[in-house]
Structure formats: structure tokens, C-alpha cells
Simulated assay, not measured.
Amino acid sequence: MTEYGYFLSCEEFTPGELIDQARQARRAGFTRLAISDHYHPWNEAQGNSAFVWSVIGALSQAVDLPVTTLVTCPTVRLHPAVTAQAAATSSVLLGGRFALGVGTGEALNEHVHGDAWPSFETRAEMLEEAVGVMRELFTGALVSHDGRHYTVDNARLYTAPEERVPVYVSAFGPKAAELAGRVGDGFVTMTPDTELVGSFRENGGAGKRVVGGVKVCWSGDRDKAVARVHRLWPTELLPGELAQILPTPAHFEQASELVTPEMVASSVTCGDDVEEHVEAVRAYARAGFDEVYVGQIGPEQEAFFDAYRERVLPALHG
């Protein structure tokens, strides 16, 4: 049975707003939380990018919902040994209700040390090695590792997770879906793509969780909602690998000039048509997703949570 959670966007909201949204999500009937992990927002209009591990610590004291990162890159900006410590502490604070979603990352967030941005093939190798290192550390054992991409010298997590930390691997293409099936405890993708889910299942993912997310903009004024999405999240509609290779918010703003309001109107669920919202989310359930996270774009958070509590979530569960 599909579970429905709320997606917290660190790029668009302040830490305090994210905590308030988490509380509202709990009251509205969402049963899980997901949270993005960024160093930069996608564009200047979003205007935020809090350190996700601090926010997760605050969430653990504010609500009793499970939390999943969607997604963390444990390979460049943070060494996997440091990411493992952050994830282990998050799991302890959340009483085991934590899952680590990981991916090969975007230059937008990972270039900040000035390192060259690797090819996808190299990044996939790095991710696979990083997942292995983190799993060893999660046991609380003393770990030394001398690999192709990472060295770990006598590292031990003294605050080790009491529960197993599931590692969900993000993928947007067949090669990455195969990687997710081979090394992940679950699969993260942002479109209800049955072929991609099938590729994951056929390559070691049978019986593992499939996780997705969708952004919407609930508003009584559909035109205003479309304009809001076009201003804040045109990056959702950029094609190909641009999201992985562009290095700064300014570059994303330049690329987003290709995205028109008409493209937003035809691709993103905007307005207050309950059936449109239900169908946008239900598409993931039909595609075999176990968890779906819905994120509300813009400031009308209270109206969104009221509508989902009273109308959308009951229809999804009905």
C-alpha cells in the first residue's frame, strides 16, 4: 500500500518554515517526510539552502514522522565517512525512523571545493564505493578502507545507529536504475516511469522500496499558481542532464529562459482542482511506488494542507 509523505524543500524555505510545514504535514495526515539536501538553491528566487543535517535534528524534536533525504550526495562535497556520521546521528535522533536517499549529485552543489566535476560513469563508481563505506561504518565497527576513490583510516562511529539505515539510490536513467537495484535498499526517482521501475526490479530491486516525489502548487487562482511555479521552479522542466552539470544558480536562470508558462501549465499540477491533484499523486501508486512525497510550491501552505487533509488524501486512501 502506497504511503503519502510531504516533501520539504530546503531551497525554497527557511529552516523555521520547514519545521512549521512538518508540523502541518503531520496534522494533515501525511505519514512521512522527505527533505532535499543542497548547498545552493536552483535559482535566486528560491533564496534558501539550509544545512540539511541541522534541519533533520530540529525535525526529530518537532514531529514523530520518519524522515528521508531526497537526496544526499555522499561523494564530493562531503566524504562518505562524514555523511555516515551525519546519517547515523539522524537515525539515533529519529529513533530509527530515518532513511538515507543518495545520488550521484549535481555540480550545482558539489563543485564548491573547486574539484573537477566527474563524468556520470565516475560518479556512479564513487557512489557505489561510498555506499559500501557507509554501510561498514553504520555497524559501529572500526573501519579502514583504501579504495579507488576514498580512503578511510581507523574510523569508528561511536554514536552508531541502533536500527539499520536503509540506503535508497536515486536514478533517472536505466544505467542508474541498475545501480540502484544492485547496491540500494530502495530506488528514488521523480517520475512515475513504469519502465524505469521495472529495470530496477529486474536488476536486484525485487521486494525493495520505490520512492518518488512530485511538486504541485495549490491555489484558488490557477494563473497565479502557474506564474509562481514559473518563477520559482522552472528548473523542474529542464531537459536531459542540465540539472547535473550546470554549476551555479545563474546558469540555471539562463537555461530556464527556455521554459515558458505554457510548459508549466501543461506539466505541473496548479490550482485547486482536487481530481487533478489526486491523479498527479495516484500516478505514482499505479506505477508501483511505495512512498510518494508531495511538495507545495509557494506561500499558500495552509490552504494546501487544509485541502489535502480534507479532500485529497481521503480520496487517495479511498
Rank of each mutant, 00 (worst) to 15 (best):
V226S: 03
C10A: 15
V55C: 09
P74W: 07
E310K: 15
Y39K: 12
P74D: 01
G140K: 09
V165Y: 03
D221Q: 08
S256E: 00
L65A: 01
A285I: 04
Q24G: 11
K215C: 14
T269W: 03
V292Y: 03
W218K: 08
F120W: 10
L142A: 13
G140E: 07
H111M: 11
A25I: 01
F172M: 08
T194P: 10
D64R: 11
G114V: 10
V259H: 05
Y6Q: 08
T194R: 15
V197K: 04
R156L: 11
T194S: 14
F13G: 02
Q85C: 09
R156M: 13
V226E: 01
F7S: 04
P15S: 10
A177R: 02
A206E: 15
G271E: 04
F7I: 04
L108N: 09
L237W: 05
D290A: 07
T159I: 15
T14V: 05
G140N: 08
Q296Y: 02
H113Y: 13
V169E: 00
V67T: 00
D153L: 13
F30H: 00
H111G: 05
P118W: 00
A124C: 13
G16M: 07
V112I: 13
E202A: 15
V82F: 02
R309S: 14
A160V: 03
A81P: 08
A25W: 00
D273Q: 12
V211R: 01
G181C: 10
S36L: 04
E3L: 15
T269K: 08
E110R: 10
L33A: 06
G147F: 08
V312L: 10
A81I: 02
Q21T: 01
A155L: 06
V152L: 04
G205D: 10
Y39P: 01
E125F: 13
A25R: 06
L142D: 14
A88V: 05
R77T: 07
D37E: 12
P161Q: 06
Q24K: 15
E12I: 08
L65F: 08
V229W: 04
I297C: 01
D64A: 15
L137Y: 09
D273W: 09
V112C: 10
Q61Y: 14
S219A: 14
E178F: 09
V292F: 01
V226Q: 01
H277P: 06
G205V: 10
W233F: 14
H111D: 08
L242M: 08
E291N: 10
T72M: 12
S219H: 13
E125L: 11
T122Q: 13
P15M: 10
R148H: 14
A130Y: 05
L93A: 09
H277Q: 09
C217A: 11
E202M: 14
L94G: 03
